[in-house]
C-alpha cells in the first residue's frame, strides 16, 4: 500500500514526458507522443529483425562451427572455416572474378543506361515507343534472362556462337573460362540497362528547361553542356544507381549465373554468392558456407561505407 501514492505521481511524470515539447520544433516532424513513431516503425523493425538480424547472427555463429549436415553435432573450430576459405586458391580466384564482374557490369550498365537515356531524352517523335521498348526488358525475371542468354550462347545452336564462328572465333561457352565470362557479363549488363535507363531518364527530365536554355547560351558544344550542367545535376541519381548496381552485380545476378552454368559450374566463372550456395546447399557444408557469407557481408558493408564516405561527399543534392 505504501507504493500507491507514488503511482499517480509516476503516471503524471510519464504523461509530462510524453507531452514534452520536441527539442527543435522548427525542424522536426512532430508526434504528440514519442512512443507513436516507435509504434509506426515497429512492424518494419520486426521484419528487419526476423529476416536480417536473426539470420545474420545465425550465420556468424555457425561460421565458427564444423557441423554435420543433419545437425547431430557441432564442433567449435574457431576461425578454421575462415582460414580454409581464404587459403583456398579456388576461393581467391572466385573473389577475383567477382570483383572484375562487379566492376565491369556496373560500369557498362551505368554507361549504356546513361547513353540510352540521353539519346531517348532527345528524341521528339515516337519517344514513348522507344522508351517502352527500352524499359520492357526490365520486366523479365533473372532466370528467364539467363535462359535467353543460354540459348543465345548455346554451343550447338546459339546465334551469338554462330555469329562468332563467322569471324573464325570458336566460342565455347561452358567450356572456355573467358568465353563464359564474356557471356555472363553480356547477359547481366543487358538485364540491368533498363533499370538504369528509367532512373537516368527521369533524372534528365527533372533538369529544369531554364537551366538547359541558359547552358545553351553559354556553350555550343553539346558534350560540354552535358559535362558541366547535366551530369552534376544527375549526380544524386548516379550515386544511387552506383550503389544499387554494385549490389545487383554481387547478389542479384545469382539467377542468371545459375541458369547459364546449368547448375554445374565446373571451371566456369562464378561469383562469391554462388559459391556460398554451392557449398552450403549442394555441398551441405554449413560452417564453411556460413564463413563465406560472413566474409561477403563484411566486404559489402565496407564497400558501402567507402562509397558513402568517398563519393557521396561530392554529390550535390541541389
Amino acid at each position: 500500500m505504501t507504493a500507491s501514492p507514488l503511482v499517480p505521481a509516476r503516471l503524471a511524470a510519464v504523461r509530462r514526458w510524453m507531452a514534452r515539447p520536441a527539442a527543435h520544433p522548427a525542424k522536426l516532424a512532430q508526434f504528440d507522443r514519442p512512443l507513436a513513431p516507435w509504434l509506426f516503425v515497429a512492424p518494419q523493425l520486426l521484419i528487419v529483425a526476423i529476416f536480417f538480424y536473426w539470420p545474420s547472427v545465425q550465420a556468424v555463429t555457425s561460421s565458427f562451427y564444423l557441423e554435420d549436415p543433419f545437425g547431430f553435432g557441432a564442433a567449435f573450430v574457431g576461425l578454421d572455416n575462415y582460414r580454409d576459405a581464404l587459403a583456398s586458391n579456388e576461393y581467391r580466384h572466385i573473389a577475383g572474378f567477382t570483383a572484375l564482374f562487379a566492376a565491369t557490369v556496373t560500369a557498362l550498365s551505368l554507361g549504356l543506361g546513361l547513353l540510352l537515356a540521353v539519346k531517348a531524352d532527345a528524341v521528339m517523335r515516337g519517344s514513348g515507343a522507344y522508351k517502352t521498348a527500352l524499359i520492357s526488358v526490365y520486366a523479365i525475371a533473372p532466370p528467364v534472362v539467363g535462359l535467353i542468354g543460354m540459348m543465345m550462347f548455346d554451343m550447338h545452336i546459339g546465334p551469338f556462337t554462330q555469329a562468332a564462328a563467322l569471324f573464325g572465333w570458336d566460342m565455347r561457352v561452358g567450356i572456355d573460362y573467358q568465353d563464359t565470362a564474356l557471356a555472363l557479363i553480356t547477359v547481366a549488363v543487358w538485364k540491368q540497362i533498363p533499370y538504369n535507363f528509367i532512373f537516368f531518364l527521369s533524372g534528365l527530365q527533372a533538369v529544369p528547361s531554364s537551366v538547359r536554355e541558359a547552358a545553351l547560351i553559354d556553350a555550343r558544344s553539346g558534350w560540354r553542356r552535358f559535362r558541366d550542367v547535366t551530369l552534376p545535376l544527375l549526380a544524386p541519381t548516379g550515386f544511387f544507381l552506383l550503389v544499387i548496381n554494385i549490389t545487383y552485380a554481387l547478389f542479384d545476378t545469382f539467377g542468371i549465373i545459375d541458369v547459364m552454368v546449368k547448375d554445374k559450374p565446373a571451371n566456369n566463372p562464378i561469383t562469391l554468392v554462388y559459391k556460398v550456395y554451392l557449398d552450403g546447399f549442394k555441398g551441405n557444408d554449413i560452417g564453411g558456407s556460413s564463413a563465406q557469407s560472413v566474409i561477403l557481408m563484411v566486404v559489402v558493408a565496407a564497400l558501402t561505407v567507402a562509397q558513402f564516405r568517398l563519393i557521396e561527399r561530392r554529390v550535390h543534392y541541389g
Binding site: 554451343m155 550447338h156 565455347r172 561452358g174 567450356i175 546449368k262 554445374k264 559450374p265 565446373a266
Partner: peptide, 8 residues
C-alpha cells in the same frame, strides 16, 4: 567434349 552439362 561439350562441358559438364548432361544434355550438351
Amino acid at each position: 567434349f561439350y562441358g559438364a552439362g548432361w544434355v550438351d
